[in-house]
Amino acid sequence: MESTAKPKVAVHKFSSCDGCQLAFLNLGAALMQVAELVDFTHFAEAGPLAPDAAVDIAFVEGSIATPDDLQRIARVREQSRFLVTIGACATAGGVQALRNLANAGEWIAGVYARPEHIHSLDRSTPIAEHVKVDLELWGCPVNGRQVLGALRALLFGVMPAQENDKVCMECKRRQTVCVMVTRGRACMGPVTRTGCGALCPSFGRDCYACYGPAENPNTAALARRFEGLGLVPEAVARRFLFINNGAPAFRDAGLKSGERHDG
């Protein structure tokens, strides 16, 4: 870097499990190197607290699910040159967006002894539904390679390369044997975005779409195939309505299969 002042970076948490922040904290030695390249002005889980300080890059974890989230995200956007969402919650509303498809009030009343203390919105929504987002990193959780790649690219002043291929491409590059073709597993790989390194199939299990929809996903064809493999429509719907149920391609596919179940 030419300038002596290091770029300022914030890591914010909204409605989430904190897992995506671990992509930074689990970097090991690379985290020391990151700390030489940038100043973390706000990163509650790691220590620094300055939520309202102006930064060059803000990484945002979590969805907008409470009235407080709504106000904070507007402030974060105002104070940040680049806003990068990390993970399924921030990018698609997270698993908690399942309540968007149900009666959230009923669920809260059913779970909590004193529901009047719960202040949450009826819907859990992605950050991009509220403010402009410059870059989205998918995954539940995102991994170190993704956040470092994005950070490095932004420090160079360019956008990182898009990763939007299907998981299948990565399985084949790694010579991972297809679990759907050899074992009839209902794998979400053919509609899911790569980025995880095709982790689950490499351990013999089917992809469950934690990286969200790939570009040009043919969810209808995959849903038909799942039925051919013996899944009832309700089970097909559950494959789509999971971690990234808030992503439109999955939500629509899940609801469509669900209607077949109900109908």
Binding site: K166, C168, M169, K172, R173, C178, P190, V191, N218
Partner: peptide
């Protein structure tokens, strides 16, 4: 195209 997943398995193998 309505059946194809556009997943790239065919070209990879």
């Amino acid at each position: 195209a309505e059946r194809c997943l556009s997943c790239g398995n065919c070209t990879s193998v």
